[in-house]
Design a protein around this nucleic acid. Structure first.
Lengths: 212, 212
DNA sequence: ACCTGAACACCGTTCAAGT
DNA sequence: ACCTGAACACCGTTCAAGT
């Protein structure tokens, strides 16, 4: 099959997702595509360019279509959640995304990039990125390489809590669930803080008249 | 001079700050300390451990002493600013910090780690980390290695805007200042959003009685 | 206990050569 | 235009050997 920039970037993203950012190398990508290493350089100028491509690829996979009927609060929440879904779908690519400039065109095309409230947007993006780094980033990149297998047990081993899954299968699945809930709640909590803060900053919609 | 874990970590941090995370290697660290590569392994188990050490070292350099007289709003702001100062002092180490678990003991000892309001703290940390990644992280790590020199011109070249400093010295210093102001204002803006949001969530200090 | 140096299995990228 | 393979200057880490 023909070698293309796109196939190279996709292969790199898959490699990162399977074995972490450290595992990605031009040689491994080439091997995966069944070609020699140097063949890659006909479609891509450097490894850095491949990683740029991965960041862009992942960012543009955000699925968000604005709903003009919704309030701005709900639109902001929807965007934040779309971003988060992307991060959860490509957790190990997040470090790569984050190591490049964030205000990319891809991000803008996903609806992040208003005109009048750039600072508000930046605050949200900062919050979202920071949240997802914590959520996704229990030492995601610079650690010793993982084994090639990707069973649930080794995924659980990425958590700070270390238990033998053979001995405590139910404890582990439970703790994973609890952690997930925790992340959900944490994310929504902070998101809500920001949404309310911004709402309070707007010209107040006079519900009940005050005295004075 | 004697080789120690501390000297190794300090050397690594300096190397990262001078040439970026990509430039750090066991061999370079050893060369800097005037020893053979393998001598390092008597004090440190692996490169990953060195990077863990760097993250901890940088995190524990946060200078914050709580002022019990100040309001909680001001205390939170002071902590956030202390964190930010650290990030600006070690900008290129930030990616290393961020690639490890953030809720470390070092962070807690810097005053981040309340009991009753863990989620609030997490929201702030998420915001701060996300902000500083943007501020500090114009492709901080995975880029082609920089030349060894660290003059202001090459620092300016890290910005997205590319001008020849020989031709436009004043434009560059101006734009740097503008960017700095921008970062300051952005950071304070979002910080203020969060502080107000949290304040509004507290049992309101009844200033003026309402009708109803 | 601490350091050395050779060796191994990797890197990214250049270059000359092939089709 | 696209691919190859040898080569170069690097990696992290193991191991056997020295003090």
């Amino acid at each position: 099959m023909q070698l293309t920039r796109e196939r190279i970037i996709t292969a790199a993203a898959e490699l990162i997702e399977r074995e972490g950012p450290d595992a990605v190398s031009m040689r491994r990508i080439a091997a995966q595509l069944g070609s020699g290493v140097m063949a890659l350089y006909n479609h891509v100028p450097s490894k850095a360019a491949v990683l740029d491509g991965v960041a862009d690829h992942v960012l543009s996979s955000i699925e968000y279509t604005p709903d003009p009927g919704a309030s701005w609060e709900e639109q902001v929440r929807a965007q934040a959640r779309a971003f988060r879904q992307m991060a959860r779908a490509h957790p190990r690519c997040m470090m790569v995304v984050v190591s490049r400039p964030v205000d990319s065109a891809a991000l803008r095309s996903a609806g992040f990039g208003g005109e009048e409230a750039i600072r508000v947007v930046r605050s949200f993006v900062a919050y979202i990125v920071g949240s997802l780094l914590r959520e996704v980033g229990v030492s995601p990149g610079l650690e010793p390489t993982r084994p090639l297998t990707q069973d649930p047990a080794s995924l659980a081993a990425d958590r700070p809590i270390h238990l033998d899954p053979a001995e405590f299968p139910q404890v582990i699945s439970l703790s994973t669930e609890l952690l997930d809930r925790d992340f959900d709640a944490d994310f929504e909590f902070g998101l809500d803080l920001l949404v309310r803060a911004v709402a309070d900053r707007r010209p107040v919609k006079e519900l009940a008249p005050r005295n004075a």
